[in-house]
């Protein structure tokens, strides 16, 4: 029951985050919202596991947390340098 209440809160937050991801004027707003959606997915996963009394699948949550970070940093690195490679490649290649 209490997990259901928390799940509803997370669902509301997810909806609001999706609204910002769709509206967000800059790409940074969308990225921030996407990051929050990722965290919301982890929380939803954990809470749902507890609600159905099978919380063994939390390992997936660890993967999500790491992937969330990787996705965010990849986009940010692309923004900063225009590529994902090393800084040395950038210097050599005007492309």
């Amino acid at each position: 029951m209490m997990f259901a209440a928390a799940i509803i809160a997370v669902l509301i937050a997810l909806t609001l985050a999706v609204a910002r991801a769709l509206a967000g004027p800059t790409a940074f707003d969308r990225l921030l919202a996407a990051n929050k959606i990722g965290v919301g997915a982890i929380m939803l996963l954990a809470l749902f596991g507890f609600m159905t009394e099978r919380p063994e699948f939390l390992d997936v949550g660890i993967t999500y947390a790491l992937l969330n970070m990787i996705g965010t940093l990849a986009v940010l690195k692309f923004f900063r340098y225009g590529a994902l490679g090393h800084a040395q490649d950038l210097d050599r290649d005007p492309g």
Binding site: A21, A27, R30, A33, A34, A41, V75
Partner: peptide, 8 residues
């Protein structure tokens, strides 16, 4: 970015 959110 939206595709990433979609995936989650």
């Amino acid at each position: 970015v939206l595709a990433g959110a979609y995936s989650f």
